[in-house]
Design a protein around this nucleic acid. Structure first.
Lengths: 229, 229
DNA sequence: CGGCTACTTGACTGTGGTCAATTGGTGTGG
DNA sequence: CCACACCAATTGACCACAGTCAAGTAGCCG
């Protein structure tokens, strides 16, 4: 681990531009941790001791309600960072995080992370940049929840998934849901039943075809149309 | 203006701990701007040239939809900062801002702001802190929109308003809506008609009494109860 | 007083959430 | 290898919250 971590850091935007001995320095103060599928990384309210970088696998950051409902805030993939903001808030993590698959994370303790920022003004700018991205994501989520109905939100997420697979989105492209449709529903912010119905409907209209977790886009133009501006 | 600005900066968390000549330095690179009620400060998509500190008055930061609906993201009061994140994002401001009343803002140009951060590691930590607060607000908003129905959201906003007036919330306390009920509806994230009905209902239940923009809390315990955990 | 905006109230509709039953798929253990 | 169990997904029936449209009232300012 110690040997490979610096390499991986080069691919993470927040650390990409550092000298390689800086990478070693970060690797020295951090720890690689492995989480099994569905293993809890932290829960809302836990004291925010660390911030994280996804090295491998994927992580769901989410809010859950008293009644057991869930809203996914974001699904993190390799070289994304999360919980950087929690480090600056008292009151612990404002959301929970679990591994969606077997996942390797780089865990940087709170105070080491703060040292890092203090020691390097350029680093602090990159942390600010990554937090801005988070903020932007959350504002977009608010927008989606406030203004868009379920089918529109679904269309947008399908488009995003296609983009994540960095395939040009065109007729015939197949996107694969990262996990279950139940998870996808939590991402979209709806009930699984509603998702199921909405997907079939979109299928009936000839926009997509659904085979398990594989969704083939049959009419990309119409899908974009559905997703609105 | 030039004379009073440094004084005001002492009361802003982001700048409070600076030496007073730093305050003067900030005042020198920034500009005090006055906005009339309902005057637009910036619109979603505008290039993010500056970030702002509310000196006086109040500002609404909001998203609006194609169909003319609005969702208020936050109402800023004196010594709050906004648009700090936009400075780090390409694509311009992700939301719009207007003055709710006659308002004085300190406007700090993007590059001066970046200089400020680069020049002082402690400053960057404070900017990070203020962005964390924004992020936390947005996560809470997502939570509210996803999990809570309108009456609960209303109760929470009433409690927050009471807290803003830093009065201990107890029976008999009166909170005054900062502007119109229509605005309040946009803050809560609902239609004015729905707000109107919901408020009357809460009134009928004896929890509050409503006289125009003044809402008297008649049963604080019940109101907290309504707001949930 | 007129005119504008804010607000209220009524009637209706639709989206989507919940409960419940069924089917389908997958992995484990006998 | 099959049977069972478990979880994911689908489908049906129902309902309620809240949004929309419309009309009317109240309040405010010039």
């Amino acid at each position: 681990m110690r040997l490979t971590t610096p390499r991986l850091l080069e691919r993470c935007p927040m650390f990409a531009k550092l000298a390689s001995d800086d990478h070693q320095r970060i690797a020295d103060v951090s720890e690689v941790r492995v989480f099994k599928r569905n293993e809890v990384i932290f829960q809302e309210g836990d004291p925010a001791r660390s911030f994280y970088i996804v090295l491998d696998g994927d992580v769901k950051v989410f809010k859950s309600s008293q009644q057991g409902k869930e809203q996914t805030l974001h699904r993190m993939t390799p070289f994304n960072t999360f919980a950087e903001a929690a480090v600056f808030l008292q009151g612990g993590y404002p959301a929970s995080a679990i591994a969606l698959h077997e996942t390797r994370l780089l865990e940087i303790p709170r105070d080491k992370f703060l040292d890092l920022i203090r020691s390097d003004p350029e680093m602090s700018l990159r942390v600010l940049a990554s937090m801005s991205v988070w903020l932007h994501r959350m504002v977009n989520l608010v927008e989606d929840l406030s203004f868009s109905e379920v089918p529109v939100r679904i269309a947008r997420h399908l488009i995003r998934l296609a983009a994540d697979g960095n395939v040009e989105m065109e007729d015939g492209v197949t996107v694969t849901l990262p996990t279950t449709k139940t998870e996808f529903a939590k991402l979209v912010g709806t009930a699984q039943e509603t998702l199921s119905r909405a997907l079939s409907k979109i299928g009936d209209e000839g926009v997509i075809s659904i085979k398990g977790r594989n969704i083939t886009i049959k009419n990309a133009a119409l899908l974009k149309e559905m997703a609105g501006k």
